[in-house]
Design a protein around this nucleic acid. Structure first.
Lengths: 166, 166
DNA sequence: GCGATGGCGTTACTTTATTACATTCAGGTT
DNA sequence: AACCTGAATGTAATAAAGTAACGCCATCGC
């Protein structure tokens, strides 16, 4: 991810989340104008909601929030906004959870591996390149060409482990 | 995987499927008696249905088949049988597809990586060890302990590629 | 201003999955 | 054989996740 090993720990450890979320939102806005895509109110708000925590949220959880704030209350409202964000690399979909999480490093590796803590539920993005390389190599031996990889790990983060969670 | 690089290609290439399915069923039965678990009619039939192809099947697709053969026609019938098979390592769940596939190598690596061909829809199991190692290493740098990994690749198999599928 | 496009909202529906509870069946005990 | 017990099976009902189809309105290029 952006710089180093710190990215993972930074997600799980306590940190200035206001700033963390704000930075991601700014980067997102920058990337979109660059691409000529529009960050409309629903989309912006959806991203903000995802950015409030490092957890993954279900589409209906997001929808409830949007509806409470005066946006539409039908599923497509949430799904469309989420799909937009995913398409533009501003959010990720977690297959294991049927849920979505804001991307914290837009513009870097757009198909990271995900580390999901089973205790605090937070989700971190990890550099997928070495993992994908291993996968690609194994597949190639069988003549299979990998186009998209889903890599999601469930486990325990350092912060929860330090707090004594088994 | 059982032996080698051949396992992947063998899944996608034409082969004696009767024998392939039969062998998997035998191995499954053997493993279950060993574990003291019961391969009841619904469970056995569910496994056979999955083994008929190398595709992943949705729970409702399996359910339709079971219902047509005189078993119950309510979702729990299929979900319970499938869950049993997954628990005992005789089938796998594919997160990306919300579907299930028979395990072709029961007793070997119970958490393989999956290679899903987007053209023929078949699913092969690949050795996950090297991939999981890479994932574990990346995660460990961030203090994260991986407990379970989901590794699923979408792409094109050798057979489809040879047939000119782009 | 005017049409084309994209975004948003709605209704309606499909697909996937679970909860809760009644019934049946295999196995061991008396 | 009668009896108990726990696992397995079946049902109805419902929840959760996701999609299709359509109309309205705003924005943008002309």
């Amino acid at each position: 991810m952006p710089d180093s090993d710190h990215a993972i720990a930074a997600t799980f450890a306590p940190h200035d989340h206001q700033q963390c979320a704000h930075r991601a939102l700014d980067e997102a806005a920058a990337r979109l104008t660059e691409q000529g895509a529009r960050l409309t109110p629903v989309r912006r708000r959806t991203l903000e909601i995802l950015l409030e925590s490092h957890r993954a949220m279900g589409a209906y959880e997001v929808l409830d929030r949007l509806a409470a704030e005066g946006f539409g209350r039908q599923p497509p409202v949430a799904y469309r906004a989420l799909e937009f964000l995913v398409t533009h690399g501003l959010a990720h979909r977690l297959q294991r959870l049927n849920a979505f999480a804001a991307c914290l490093h837009p513009g870097h590796d757009h198909h990271p591996a995900f580390l999901i803590c089973r205790s605090c539920d937070k989700v971190a993005e990890a550099a997928a390149a070495p993992i994908r390389d291993a996968l690609t190599a194994v597949a190639a031996q069988g003549g299979f060409r990998v186009e998209r990889a889903t890599i999601e790990a469930l486990g325990l983060c350092a912060t929860c482990a330090a707090e004594g969670v088994a």
